[in-house]
């Protein structure tokens, strides 16, 4: 289970971010409150995604077991993907 959570860590962070901002916008509609909440959540989640990516990358370099290295690779990639998606997801708070 931990393996899976690590493997999908970035994407899980993306999920948390997406539904957090969705709920915020649903409750506060298009208001300053919603924008602020979105921005805050976005920063926190970006930080989490960055951490996961870096950790994955470090683990990848350090791992000897090919299976472990593979898991680190995927974790790093999913963190990076999540980073991009979360960054985009934060844009509406600035632009709308």
């Amino acid at each position: 289970m931990r393996t899976w959570a690590y493997l999908l860590g970035g994407l899980i962070v993306w999920t948390v971010h997406f539904f957090a901002v969705y709920v915020a916008a649903s409750i506060f509609l298009t208001s300053t409150t919603a924008r602020v909440v979105t921005a805050l959540v976005t920063f926190v989640c970006l930080a989490a995604a960055t951490t996961l990516t870096l950790r994955g990358w470090a683990g990848r370099v350090g791992a000897t077991d090919p299976e472990r290295r593979w898991i680190h690779t995927i974790a790093a990639l999913s963190g990076a993907t999540a980073f991009l998606a979360i960054a985009w997801q934060g844009l509406p708070a600035l632009l709308i």
């Binding site: 493997l7 999908l8 994407l11 899980i12 993306w14 999920t15 997406f18 901002v21 969705y22 916008a25 649903s26 509609l29 298009t30 919603a34 924008r35 979105t38 995927i74 999913s78 993907t81 998606a85 997801q89 844009l91 509406p92 708070a93 632009l95 709308i96």
Partner: peptide, 27 residues
């Protein structure tokens, strides 16, 4: 994996014309 996750964040793009809050639409 990414598709499996992110595709659950796109359902409302079938509903852009329903008059949802602009911010949600942006997400």
């Amino acid at each position: 994996l990414a598709t499996g996750f992110i595709s659950f964040g796109v359902w409302a793009h079938h509903m852009f014309a329903t008059g949802m809050p602009a911010l949600s639409v942006g997400f």
